[in-house]
């Protein structure tokens, strides 16, 4: 049988894979081929590759990257993914791209829909950041890179807290929690929301210790009152206690955003993971019901002016 894909130029290289641009022969559609480097790891096939296939096979949603195919070639494992030429990090950083509150609302809505789909299929993403929110040629945001994802753990299962890129890491992970939930992803989306509004990273810690300092200085150090048992974490006693920001302070930080936008952000950046909003609460928030309506993704111009 003749294959239906052609592999063209190399477009990127990560720790465990090389990404090529390709074409699907049947409809000349651009695709991305991720060639997994199988022989170069001391533990065999990399966990990230396994997780990527495992979870993308289970998930099918307009706001989640699509795994189209898997094939072995020259004894290398290849994943065929839809080709997504841009990502949110590039757009946020490119100051020549101008976007509106309605555009931000549209991006946040698409992100939350993608993350909600993961959660309702019992998958934690654990590495949400602008760089992993890819943008299709039609302007659709797609959650990508499931290399750190995992199924929702059983109640007594012990997990590693060394997940999520530092700036987007939830407080329970900063404290080294051995068990956590969907709330870690919601926190990351909250930080991404703030970054879209500010156009600079919201909580840019220099290292793991500084990340705690930066996070709690900006959002207040959690206390036993709002997060019972938080002081049981070993690193808690070394913390400087900062008060949470007042509503006025938040308004000054995020000028020109509506009250419901601030409510949503506060819900997503709730210190206590038990009280943090779920993706359903986020999607049902007043922010998405008030004007301006989210932009039509295809109408958002993300190319430099």
């Amino acid at each position: 049988m003749r294959e239906s894909y052609s592999k063209e130029n190399k477009v990127g290289e990560g720790t465990y894979a090389v990404v090529y641009l390709g074409t699907r022969q049947s409809d000349s559609k651009k695709i991305a081929i991720k060639e997994i480097k199988t022989s170069e790891f001391k533990d065999g096939l990399d966990m990230s590759a396994i997780r990527e296939v495992k979870y993308l096979q289970e998930l099918e949603h307009p706001n989640v990257i699509r795994l189209m195919d898997i094939f072995m070639a020259y004894n290398n494992l290849n994943l065929v993914l839809e080709f997504l030429p841009s990502d949110l990090e590039v757009v946020i950083k490119d100051k020549s791209v101008l976007f509106t509150q309605a555009d931000i609302k549209s991006w946040l809505l698409m992100t939350l829909r993608g993350v909600h789909h993961c959660h309702r299929n019992f998958v934690l993403h654990r590495d949400l950041k602008p760089n992993n929110l890819l943008i299709s040629p039609e302007g659709i945001i797609k959650v990508a890179d499931f290399g750190l994802a995992r199924a929702v753990p059983n109640p007594r299962e012990i997990l590693t807290s060394n997940v999520v890129t530092r700036w987007y890491r939830a407080p329970e992970l900063l404290f080294g929690a051995k068990h956590y939930t969907y709330a870690v992803d919601v926190w990351s989306v909250g930080v991404i929301f703030a970054e879209m509004l500010l156009r600079v990273p919201y909580l840019p810690g220099k290292d793991d210790v500084d990340q705690m300092e930066v996070t709690f200085r900006a959002l207040g150090t959690p206390t036993e009152k709002d997060w019972p048992s938080v002081s049981m974490f070993p690193s808690y006693n070394k913390l400087q206690i900062y008060p949470p920001p007042s509503r006025d302070e938040l308004r000054n930080r995020f000028i020109a955003v509506s009250s419901s936008a601030l409510n949503l952000m506060c819900g997503m950046l709730e210190m206590n993971p038990g009280n943090r909003w779920s993706t359903v609460q986020c999607l049902e928030s007043a922010y998405f019901k008030e004007l301006p309506s989210p932009s039509n993704p295809a109408d958002i111009n993300i190319s430099s002016s």
Partner: peptide
């Protein structure tokens, strides 16, 4: 540069 493959499908 472009390449095409001979394939088996399972």
């Amino acid at each position: 540069m472009s390449a095409q493959f001979e394939m088996q499908l399972y």
